[in-house]
Design a protein around this nucleic acid. Sequence first.
DNA 1: AAAAATCAGTAGC
DNA 2: ATATGGCTACTGATTTTT
Length: 478
Amino acid sequence: MQGFDAAKINEIIRKASEGSRFYQHKQQAQQKLDAKIKEMLHTAQQMSPQLLEKATKKMEAVALECEAGRDLSRTIVHVDMDMFYAAVEMRDQPNLKDVPMAVGGNSMLSTSNYIARKFGVRAGMPGFIARQLCPALVLVPPNFSKYKAVSRVVEQVFAIYDPNYAMMSLDEAYLDITDYMEANADAYQAKSEVDNETLAEAIVREMRLKIQEATQLTASAGIAANTRLAKVCSDLNKPNGQYYLPSDTRAIMDFINKLPIRKISGIGNVTEQQLKALGITLCGQIRPNYGLLRLLFSDCSLDYFVRISLGLGETDLSNYTSGEQKSISTETTFTGTSCKQKLMQMVSDLSIELHGDMKKKGLVGKLVTLKTKTVNFVLKTRSMALGEPTSDPEVMGKVARKLLIAEMEKCPVDEPLSLRLLGVRMSNLSEEASSGRAKQTTISKMFEKQTVSAGRESSSNYCLVTESVAREVQAFHD
DNA sequence: AAAAATCAGTAGC
DNA sequence: ATATGGCTACTGATTTTT
Ligand SMILES: Cc1cn([C@H]2C[C@H](O)[C@@H](COP(=O)(O)OP(=O)(O)OP(=O)(O)O)O2)c(=O)[nH]c1=O
Ligand SMILES: [Mg+2]
């Protein structure tokens, strides 16, 4: 056995990556971020104490307002299947149960089982590096339709506890079990008393058992007053476990104060580094730095940070479920080439594939976007609006090819555009007008469309709800 | 000056 | 021997249009 040691794992990964174009690009990005952080610290240093104090006061006022709106009345559950894709494969091929395995291919892994994780094999890691960490690793190609089918079975269980559950991906969902708790409190009385559990815990334990009975797969869950906290909690007793965070302000503050910021959904690698430079690694360190943050980040981000520091989050799941798809795309990675003929052909093929996906969903779009990635991993997007929405592969292909030609022509002849990825995306979507169907259908569809677009125009757009969620869920800066 | 369009970047699964 | 995915949604800065 080897590879259990974190230092050794990192060493192998570094050796395997070193010198590659991927690694070079990553380092370049890191340098850029370092520069940005340095500038941030510079502006931070120049701030006068008076200015800082003023900013702090302002932020505290915002915090007070947020605190006043704290809602502890809902019981939110986040359920997350354990090593989902891998677990499905292990269930269906029992010989995989006690060996290190991962789902994915030579260039990328979707996930790995817990045996493989001991070797440092993780989601997002290329298969060829994973094999170096763990030579015995078994790679299983993904079966998306199978995972989708399993996901539907799990959904049936969710529906029992909350008909308005919000599916966030194939393997995770938020549920609001408040109503279920009220309606079924008596039925769980004996159960929860025997196990010395709260009602919510007993219900969630039963739900996880039902998932296991229905799928032979285990799930983990977090129970808390809002989605942000519930999501953190579902990770704490993984796999096949659950964590209950009582819905009182003291318990929540104790919990959040010692929580690493990186555990919060929406804080990724970049934001973590930025905050770390300011001495913030725990959520509890946000509030003492309100003033500093105010002078360095956007209003949106500030709002987000304040809410994190108070342990606040979304309590209304309808904010997740409402809303249509905004874009649809297809992309492909290949061994780098600058052959114009090949690249053009690929764009045409992608457009045909995209047409198929759009047709399945009955979507048409108005904005065509071409995505390119050079052999040095530099990403670019170029877009062009159509006169009217379509999913016609010829139209989309023609526009996408035009965008590609424009990019190729910008390159000098001695250094032609050399790509490793091409993608085509359609956005500004609407529903396809049904053709050749009964009049009834056509008319009702037209009506539907009209109301939707009227809604968009009048109320500063249909995103009002969605947008407020967005500010919650995500945080970016510059 | 406001609104729309465009693009890079961050993030999550 | 070489080699790092595909999809969606959002923010924020900048440019262009109205
Ligand atoms: C993180 C990640 C997940 N996935 C897929 C595969 C995962 O099985 C599925 C769910 O993601 P996760 O819930 O993040 O991971 P997991 O279920 O495999 O493992 P865990 O026990 O830690 O929850 O999404 C990707 O395809 N790419 C990724 O980068
Ligand atoms: Mg999972």
